[in-house]
Design a protein around this nucleic acid. Structure first.
Lengths: 148, 148
DNA sequence: ATAAAACCTATTGACATACTAGGAGAATAG
DNA sequence: CTATTCTCCTAGTATGTCAATAGGTTTTAT
């Protein structure tokens, strides 16, 4: 399962913000890029996607940066992923009627559909807060503070 | 979830062969392309992938075509998909040690890993024969013969 | 005013996809 | 033997997405 770096970095950045905006209030793009070892300029293109989806809020100017703007208990990982790439969790479609596509439709229903459902169920069942905590716990040296 | 046409057509072709090689013995590329409404030339590039994976056998010359060369009860849908695109069911990897990739590794373990496991479990749990039958049953006008 | 931050737009190289095209070689029916 | 009908092989091509890189503009706290 090849996930694009856009999605990967986006999730990474969001969790970084969730975990690191606790005391600071906000986290800048350059902080994230240095902490996670990814390109700042590229990150600057990805973060607006999260902002547009209403997941983070941005503060311009000196001392500014990003912070969560959502209820992290309510937001599901599905929403996060869809904000970054809506094709990942989209099911394929076949218009009814074309009889030469009957088998294609059957395969859709029996294979791609169920696979998709499983992915969606998993991501739908996990909130951003729950996920961030899990990731924090996963870190080798632990993580002293948890958000929310 | 965007599945490439290569994978889509490959699965389609294999099921077509499974369902239609019953009486005939073999199914030609042009038959499949006409029945399913897809390009014959493109199909000719996809079918060798299934052959190389040992799933089908090819017979050249007049009256030739393709037929199953595997025990369809034993073959799992995982094998079929991997024969067509090995990146779909591959988990992402992160080498241990790089401390700046700690969070990336955690996300891998808590999100991409489990998603991948679910996909693999589903496709591993479904044999080609079971799947072909399901698809046959799914067709509106039914399907009079089932293979194997 | 200055520094630091987000924001916006453009460009680029690399790669994969989804074909199209043309023929070579094998096998078989007549 | 020959014509036909298959698979098989290789090459080319248009399109799009990815993953950046780059340079500049605007906003804001101090």
């Amino acid at each position: 399962m090849r996930v694009s770096t856009r999605v990967e970095y986006g999730v990474l950045a969001l969790v970084d913000i969730a975990l690191n905006s606790v005391g600071a209030g906000s986290v800048s793009a350059i902080e994230i890029s240095e902490r996670q070892g990814i390109s700042k300029k590229y990150l600057e293109q990805i973060l607006p996607l999260l902002k547009q989806a209403g997941l983070i809020r941005a503060q311009k100017g000196l001392g500014g940066g990003y912070s969560l703007s959502c209820n992290a208990d309510r937001v599901k990982m599905t929403d996060v992923i869809n904000a970054l790439d809506n094709s990942i969790l989209e099911p394929m479609e076949y218009e009814e009627g074309d009889s030469s596509k009957e088998l294609s439709r059957a395969i859709n229903k029996c294979l791609w559909g169920p696979i998709n459902d499983q992915m969606r169920n998993f991501t739908e069942g996990m909130s951003l807060s729950e996920f961030s905590q899990k990731c924090g716990n996963q870190m080798t040296n632990g993580w002293d503070m948890y958000i929310i």
